[in-house]
Design a binder for these strands. Sequence first.
DNA 1: CTGAAAGCGCTTACAG
DNA 2: CTGAAAGCGCTTACAG
Lengths: 347, 347
Amino acid sequence: MTKTTIHDVAARAGVSLATVDRVLNRRPGVRPQTIAKVEAAAQELNYRPDPYAASLAKKRSDRFLFLLPEGRNPFMQQLAREALATADRVLMDRVTLSVRHVDTFDKAALASALSQIDPAEYEGVAVVAQDAPVIRQAIDALRERGVHVVTLISDVATAGRDHFVGVDNVAAGRVAGRLIGRFLPQAPGKVALICGTLALSDHAQRVEGCRAVLEADYPYLEVLPVREGRDDDILTRETASNLLKSEPELVGLYNVGSGTRGLIASLEANASPGKPVTIAHELTPHAAQALEAGTLDALICQDPGHEIRSAARVLKALVDNTAIVKGQERIRIEIYIRENLPFGFTG
Amino acid sequence: MTKTTIHDVAARAGVSLATVDRVLNRRPGVRPQTIAKVEAAAQELNYRPDPYAASLAKKRSDRFLFLLPEGRNPFMQQLAREALATADRVLMDRVTLSVRHVDTFDKAALASALSQIDPAEYEGVAVVAQDAPVIRQAIDALRERGVHVVTLISDVATAGRDHFVGVDNVAAGRVAGRLIGRFLPQAPGKVALICGTLALSDHAQRVEGCRAVLEADYPYLEVLPVREGRDDDILTRETASNLLKSEPELVGLYNVGSGTRGLIASLEANASPGKPVTIAHELTPHAAQALEAGTLDALICQDPGHEIRSAARVLKALVDNTAIVKGQERIRIEIYIRENLPFGFTG
DNA sequence: CTGAAAGCGCTTACAG
DNA sequence: CTGAAAGCGCTTACAG
């Protein structure tokens, strides 16, 4: 019942440690015959490598780059904070994480950042990107140079990215639609959607999902044309205020992107008896407070800590050519109302 | 910028490796003077131990026992499955997890199981327990014999347990109350609660939370006396069917404990135009299907995988006398509706 | 294509 | 109270 090691496998296969290592890690230069012997021995002994010993023995560490949006979007800032925290923790896993900020709204800048990545410097890249042809090309080119690429938060659908880390945004939009429909009485009214930009695929997908549910199951609700708030507090505030003033029948409001702080300010300034049911995204301190106060009715969230750790694990699996655990890497769509806010969050 | 090791610290402090190890791991038998020197050196070099090397070097592994309820409660079965899966994965962290099943409803059996635990055999125990005097005493006694104890899922409040791994069940009940209140039109009606047993503190707390919200914010809803379904499918089905037949004004139904499969069967058998808004707990395949079908309106959940891993981490931290990361060990109250069901769950 | 030996950063008896 | 040395299970040059 004692642990079987690489020594045991070597002995049983009648080869040296080095050869076992070669076979087990799929390194080249071993005869098929020898490979078979070693694999059989490992199989029979039910050998499981010790990753601690392995990580201790190898000196080189894998280097991953996280390309995140710059600017004051609170969720993206959380994401960056989590990346830095994770960078600390994974240091001992022999992976080095670095974070670089780029302007997500500037396609050319992002494309050039991607194309300037040196394959000799990074084994993998995680990127939050717009879904545009120039970006797709840059990602394809990067992968051809041998760098693994995962997309983060917003997917670049047809690009040859290795993996997408984020939520199903159509489903997230459907959640918003369902909550608005269920929270509202069965009576006519108008629902407004404010997104950052439809050029970001996650925003477009949320709009699509929300609209689909509303149209299918709540036909008495009228969905107004989508407004763009550019993920900006000031612009979002203005947009929301205009809506609140010009649409007396407004009963539902869904902020698809960021700028939630502006949305909250607008709702507070335009307080009226019949406040619309309001849904927004991401658990930031301001959003939590607004939920607490009743200004917001629900929050649809994704956990930035999980996402960063998932991206790092996936990149590592890609480099090591090991399988990923699908269930573990699925990012959940979280729903928060006042009652299940994590304690201490509004501190 | 190269990694500083225990060798560097030893050199700088002018002592041997063994002494550095003694100081850093708070082992006895070092002069205060020497301790100070070593600590200063570690500080100045910003030394961070490599846990991989440490775990590789020490042969003994920590042994933890998980005492879980026996029986067919699907959530508890998930919990057991996660424990076994985790047992596999943490083997290389030098911790050995074992699972033992006991009858949770039998206080004497649980108390005796606790008192029979040999401190020479286990460093820590995680237990799902009723909050009864005999259990508290057994836990206290176990801790006095030097075994760390964490309570799992349902807390034993005044016992000297080291930590509780689970959700805030009062808050979970409040979520149920809020969802029922918000999903329902503003009109009179009756709400029924079915729990397993009020002797389990998690059930009692959920009842309390749900009732508090309903009474405070939805005074036009009448909360019926709580029924007990013993976490059993058959009993829960009967209880639900009786309610559906005898209470024509029933508009809300909250299944606080297990037995959800029976609840679903009852709702399907008694299909009527005005089905009550129904909330239950835990994401099991049957519950997911019922959510999909519209028989259930929402599910309030806790992630059994997270809970098992958290319990293992906390126990390990207790043994190693290291700090726990509070945020990481907080178990979230998850809300599922049809739209955010993890893909493939009803598969 | 294969093997012997050193070394990764710690911990652990064993001496003294 | 302190230190020298072996060893944990792997990987990595270096030879051959």
